[in-house]
Amino acid sequence: MTFTPEDLDHIAAHLAATGEIDARYSYMGEGAATWDRFVTWQEGDAVPNILHSTLSMLHDAHHDLVARLPGPVRVVDLGPGQVA
């Protein structure tokens, strides 16, 4: 996807006003299909890549940390959000 200067101005204004990316610029339509092809390619690739590394790290973290806990686990998502 290529952005025009007007698109970039709109993205910046919307982000400043709401703290979110406008949905029209997300992975929808062909962007979603392209991302799916990319991830599927990474998943099946025999060469180590960032997806393989991430999945390996999550597997290790599960076995080293989560599997040892005796009960339910609470997860706190501290992901990006709007700054007040």
Rank of each mutant, 00 (worst) to 15 (best):
I21S: 03
I11T: 07
F38I: 14
T4K: 00
D77R: 10
D7T: 00
S53P: 00
V73C: 04
M28Q: 14
T18A: 00
H63S: 06
D77H: 12
I21M: 15
M1A: 13
G31H: 15
Q82F: 15
G44S: 07
V83L: 11
R74H: 13
P80W: 13
P80Q: 13
G31F: 08
S56K: 05
I50P: 02
H52P: 00
H10D: 13
V66T: 09
I21H: 05
W41F: 07
A46E: 14
T40W: 10
A67H: 08
D45C: 12
G19W: 07
V47C: 04
A13S: 10
V76G: 10
A33Q: 12
L15F: 11
D77C: 10
D7N: 04
A67N: 04
G29I: 02
G44Y: 01
L15S: 11
D60V: 08
V66C: 11
V76Q: 11
Q82S: 12
A13K: 07
Y27W: 07
T2E: 12
P70H: 01
E30S: 07
G71A: 11
V47Q: 12
D45P: 07
V47E: 15
E43N: 07
D36N: 14
E20F: 15
D9T: 11
V75D: 02
P48A: 06
L58M: 07
G29Y: 05
V75I: 15
H62D: 15
F38D: 10
G29R: 01
A67P: 08
G79Q: 08
W35I: 09
L65P: 01
W41K: 04
V76W: 08
Q82W: 14
H52T: 00
F3T: 12
V83P: 05
P5W: 01
H63C: 06
S56H: 03
S53E: 15
L15W: 13
H10P: 01
S26F: 09
P48F: 06
Q82M: 06
D22C: 06
I50T: 12
A23F: 06
H52A: 01
D45E: 15
T4C: 02
Q82H: 12
D7W: 00
A17M: 05
D22H: 06
L8M: 04
S26T: 14
V39P: 00
R24I: 14
A16I: 09
V83E: 13
D36G: 09
A13E: 07
A46W: 06
V75F: 04
H52Y: 00
A12K: 09
P80F: 12
P72K: 14
E6K: 03
R37Q: 09
V66M: 10
S53K: 13
R68I: 04
H63N: 12
A32S: 08
G71K: 03
A12I: 03
